[in-house]
């Protein structure tokens, strides 16, 4: 049996640590703001930048910027980074049939998931807007967001569980197929559809995010605009198409981008549900395997760089539209 005393003894240093971080953070910036408020003139700009922006920049550069450069260099080295090998890792990646498959799978993830997630998100947000029990329905759909992909994968493993047709099914999907007189199948082995079943886990987990953000944006549409459109006779789908979508365009792009970058990097679902087997591998999982299972840092880094290259067009497009935004 576990006693309260032993739990407390092991927990209090951790709780103390949480409090310490809170006190230090607010203490530091409390003093900084008190002091900063007295400074006038040109000097305050540089001081504000130093206190507002520089800490975040240092953290981001240490955590992402510099490591990214290191990884770029590693991608031209051999498995244990002791020798330069030129483009060998890249040519390997292109010629390996498994990696090529992972490439194709990744592309289908990046194309299919964000579109479905965003489309579902905006439709749900629009339909739910001012509906009865809106908050309740939203909470149900958002709930998977609160569940880790580890937990989500376990939940869907339970849904997809397979037993031979002559035994009682323990997976609900299998049982439904049985009720509908469809041959019960190993859903996670049924290539290429198994990729779709894995995507379901992601869509299930991420739609809530899209819905909540888009819903917030829709509620921000000024009433006058909507009413003016209604006076012009716009209702239903037309109102949705001519007013709602254009008005929340920026938000749609935010959601699409977040989902695209998220799917490019996604690995938890694949890692926990199929381990990249059964023709479901994606680049980020393969990269994890190369780095941490086969211990080939060169190849792993090369895949990381390839993923990054895939992000560039998305980033470029977004920066272009951001530029227009920032102009005014």
């Amino acid at each position: 049996m576990i006693t309260f005393g032993s739990l407390f003894a092991s927990s209090w240093p951790k709780i103390f640590q949480i409090l310490a971080v809170i006190v230090i953070f607010f203490g530091f910036y409390g003093i900084a703001f008190a002091a900063g408020a007295r400074i006038k003139g040109k000097k305050q700009n540089s001081l504000a930048i130093a206190l507002f922006l520089v800490p975040a920049l240092i953290l981001v550069m240490t955590g992402l910027g510099i490591p990214a450069i290191q990884t770029f260099l590693e991608s031209f080295k051999n498995a244990d980074s002791s020798q330069w090998v030129g483009l060998k890792n890249y040519s390997n990646a292109i010629h390996d049939p498994d990696i090529r498959l992972a490439f194709i799978n990744t592309i289908s993830w990046v194309v299919i998931c964000p579109v479905i997630v965003t489309a579902l998100g905006i439709s749900l947000a629009t339909m739910l807007n001012k509906m009865k029990r809106e908050a309740f329905a939203k909470s149900l759909i958002f709930m998977p967001m609160a569940i880790s992909f580890v937990g989500g994968s376990l939940i869907w493993n339970l849904m997809y569980a397979y037993q031979e047709p002559d035994r009682a099914q323990t997976g609900l999907v299998g049982q439904i197929m049985l009720w509908l007189h469809i041959d019960v199948k190993h859903l996670l082995l049924w290539s290429p559809w198994n990729n779709l079943f894995l995507m379901v886990v992601y869509i299930w987990g991420f739609t809530g995010f899209a819905m909540v953000i888009l819903s917030a944006a829709i509620k921000g549409i000024p009433t006058e605009i909507e009413e003016a459109a209604q006076l012009d006779g716009a209702t239903g789908i037309r109102l949705f198409r001519t007013i709602t979508v254009p008005m929340v365009r920026t938000t749609i792009i935010v959601v699409l981008t977040t989902a695209m970058v998220g799917t490019l990097k996604l690995f938890d679902v694949i890692h926990t549900m199929t381990g990249g087997n059964f023709k479901t591998d994606v680049l980020s999982n393969r990269m994890f395997d190369e780095n941490f299972v086969y211990l080939n840092y060169g190849r792993g880094s090369a895949l990381a760089v390839l993923i990054f290259l895939g992000v560039i067009p998305i980033t470029y497009y977004n920066i272009r539209s951001l530029r227009l935004e920032r102009k005014h």
Partner: peptide, 10 residues
């Protein structure tokens, strides 16, 4: 080697 072992599993 780990790479061969990994391929063997897969």
């Amino acid at each position: 080697p780990t790479a061969v072992n990994g391929a063997f599993w897969k």
